[in-house]
Amino acid sequence: MSNVLEIRNLTKKFGDFIAVDNMSLAVREGEIFGFLGANGAGKSTTINMISSLLRSTKGEIDLLGKNIAKNAKFAKSNIGVVPQDLAIYEDMTAYENVSFFAGLYGLRGEQLKERTVEALEFVGLGDKHKAYPKNFSGGMKRRLNIACAIAHRPKLIIMDEPTVGIDPQSRNYILNSVRKLNDMGCTIIYTSHYMEEVEEICTRIAIVDHGKIIAEGTKEQLKAIITDTKDIWIGIKSEDEIKVESLKQIPGVATVRIEDQMVMINSKAEVNNLNQIIQQLIRDRAEIRSVEEQAPNLETVFLTLTGRNLRD
């Protein structure tokens, strides 16, 4: 897999303030790369430099192997930006919005029409060509916001918090579109401070804080920073029937303790053995009252490493 995007020693200063601090990373083709970090961590600044909205103070960015500062037109043409805040014209129809921006990317004539229709279909606004965004719901506006960024079929799509402040239904729609775009061959950079979203769709994640990448990898790798085990607590009615030895035979299980009608199992985190454990308990005729699995999530990773919550 080749690198779609490569960032080396990227730094951005605003006066004395260092928004992005000597950041280096590579995004490979076909990834959904997540930027996870609290507000003000430097995600948007990084993204703005990738999409040529800001100039870097230091460091280089390569898109598809070409330096974006030296090949600005090439870089801009191959990137689609979905800004954090809605960036659409309320006084132009959905079709006109998409068509205008696609036109700026050099699409003309029949091709322009086709791609515009295609983009609107893609975000589920195929029946709203002539409607004005001022009459749209928040979610529809967000979708139009995405359509404006994809009509020119960019290689790399940058989405900056695309799900802020919308209803769950539109959110799911957008997450699904992100996956669909990825299936169609787009590489995607996705920033969010919603841990669940990033965990759900991103193939690789960088945790950003104070302008630095403090951890990077797949979500499993990130969680493994904290611990490689998980705790499974199963409440049962009676302790008599439980055979500790048979539970220990289950792959991944390290220790088993039984106390106060509670089976406490410590297991390797990456092994998905909850089903087997429960089946074993049922075979032992245990009456299960509650099941609780405590595995680390990205939020705990962030909290442990930085001492702060993502949504501070």
Partner: peptide, 13 residues
């Protein structure tokens, strides 16, 4: 103010 400046600057124009 409409944030479309972002799109305009991000486009190859």
């Amino acid at each position: 103010s409409r944030n479309t400046a972002i799109r305009l600057s991000a486009a190859p124009v």
